[in-house]
């Protein structure tokens, strides 16, 4: 994919989009680029430190109902940013709000985030949402910009994601693209993840526990091999940790689909 710009260069008139070319050079893998660790040792080890902060990352829901898990994971990842209090833009369309409901500030604060730092942008359609996201990333106004889309949208293609990726690489804003109920298509994202809800370690009285996800890295531009992991979010430290394999899973041995077997495959 990195060869793409040299491939399209001859078709461009001389001097067209010079800044794009420049930005693309900046976008090349660079050891000095700051990485955002998830906090879970196993995942960070596989990612060699974390995900690139100045870049676009895609999160797909495993099943239709997992779009919420993808949204939650992206949001929690944004809270991992040291300066996440500078503001997080949450951009979604009318359709997403209709199908997925609205963000609930009491739930956000209970997970360790500060709802006062969230800025919600609701657009009429995806075209406006993509444009708003690009503007938000470019303006350096926020530390993270999360764009939520629902369904297989043709507008979210290589061109539009590259626009977001280049803007993020330029300004250092973490750009997260949540794609509920969609199949992966070619995009310019640095990493692509599939997120599923996972059974939590139960609390006394068999009560649901902390947010737990099965995450699988599908694609990494830096060359990291795909892997799967189960992580749990701890709101006290605002970080993920590797979900305990024993004990935590003992209560759900009946479930074969997302059991320990999938973890061993990684």
């Amino acid at each position: 994919m990195n060869k793409k710009p040299t491939h399209i260069q001859p078709t461009l008139p001389a001097g067209a989009f010079p800044s794009v070319q420049g930005m693309w050079k900046q976008h090349q893998p660079d050891a000095a680029q700051s990485l955002l660790p998830t906090g879970a040792p196993y995942v960070d080890e596989r990612l060699r430190g974390g995900i690139t902060q100045a870049g676009l990352h895609e999160f797909f829901g495993g099943a239709k109902a997992d779009s919420h898990a993808a949204a939650a994971f992206a949001l929690l990842l944004a809270w991992r940013l040291p300066e996440s209090d500078a503001g997080i833009f949450w951009i979604s369309g009318d359709k997403e709000r209709q199908t997925s409901g609205r963000l609930y500030p009491y739930g956000l604060s209970a997970m360790g985030g500060d709802p006062a730092c969230m800025l919600l942008v609701q657009t009429a359609d995806l075209r406006d949402a993509l444009r708003a996201a690009a503007d938000a990333i470019r303006s350096k106004a926020a530390s993270a910009v999360i764009l939520e889309t629902h369904g297989n949208a043709r507008l979210v293609d290589l061109t539009s994601t590259r626009r977001l990726a280049l803007a993020a690489a330029e300004t250092g804003v973490l750009a997260l693209l949540v794609r509920g109920d969609a199949v992966p298509m070619p995009s310019a994202a640095r990493t692509r993840w599939r997120i599923c809800s996972a059974p939590s370690a139960p609390l006394p009285g068999n009560a649901p526990g902390l947010p737990t996800f099965d995450i699988s890295l599908l694609r990494h531009r830096g060359g990291t091999a795909p892997f799967e992991a189960r992580v749990t979010w701890d709101h006290a430290t605002r970080s993920f940790f590797d979900a305990p394999l024993s004990g935590g899973l003992s209560a759900i041995v009946t479930d074969t689909k997302t059991g320990p077997a999938s973890r061993q495959r990684a």
Binding site: A71, R102, Y104, Y106, G107, L108, A110, M111, P211, H235
Partner: peptide, 19 residues
Amino acid sequence: ADWPKPVLGEPAMRPFRLF
């Protein structure tokens, strides 16, 4: 607004998304 702080050792009692 001031939002409640998370309670240590207890999961979120309110959902992050509401219909």
